[in-house]
Design a protein around this nucleic acid. Structure first.
Lengths: 128, 128
DNA sequence: AGTTGAGTTCTACAAAACGTAGAAGATCTG
DNA sequence: CAGATCTTCTACGTTTTGTAGAACTCAACT
């Protein structure tokens, strides 16, 4: 249960983008104005969704452990459980975890990172 | 289109395990004896599947670009397009690629690898 | 060359995940 | 308490995956 649908991902993106917890209504509004941006690359139109749709998605994301909500306040407020970076790193570990030969995977992985990132990695691994 | 179903994964595991290309029949047989292993952890029973089932899954994997087949030989022979390690590394890049702040993700990722793996990474990054 | 048998493709259906939302129930505000 | 707002329940359409029968293809055998 690791992958997300398109809408689920869009909602997570919004939650990750805004630092504050958001209500379903706020999210629906933001979803409606999803950058009718300049350069192509698809970019889903600003379609008006029903609030219940957003709520359903939020519930599913909550069940998946990606979102938590404040039940106290009346318009419940939703926020991501962990930052996008943490979540992505976790995902990477999940992917890596299922491999028998972890080091071989890492070797190939390292083989195709940019030089800048390689530098970052060196620093991170250095002090230890 | 990155995630696989349970059966699809089982088939890929077999293809990755055996170095030779395999026929649908061979795969079906191997699927039947999926380690009724010792320790729990589920471990799907050795269920006899129809060959057509295996063929359908193989076709889908082919469409996803994970498997290729020799059409020349009569019992077509199937094999993984890339090794499990390559594929996993690719997957990791896919996951990482969708993040805006790649370096931050890498930082967190590195934060939770074992010392042995960290050592491996240092070596790989070293010569440059 | 026609029959046979293994193999492949076509087609189909059930279950799960996801997108989408109406109807009904709960709660706050005035 | 009435009305507006919010949440939960329930439901249905679409896509993905598991599963397999029916029909078609092809090589070998007689």
């Amino acid at each position: 249960m690791a992958s997300l649908g398109e809408l689920e991902r869009a909602v997570m993106d919004l939650l990750w983008a805004g630092q504050e917890a958001a209500t379903a209504n706020t999210l629906r509004d933001r979803l409606a104005q999803t950058s009718a941006g300049q350069d192509g690359a698809a970019g889903h139109e600003g379609k008006e969704l029903a609030v219940t749709t957003v709520l359903t998605v939020l519930s599913r994301l909550e069940k998946k452990g990606l979102v938590e909500r404040e039940r106290g306040t009346r318009p419940h407020r939703y926020q991501a459980v962990s930052s996008r970076e943490d979540h992505t790193a976790e995902l990477m570990h999940e992917v890596l975890g299922s491999a028998p030969d972890r080091e071989a995977v890492l070797a190939r992985f390292i083989g195709s990172v940019s030089e800048g990132e390689a530098e970052t990695l060196r620093k991170l691994l250095g002090h230890l």
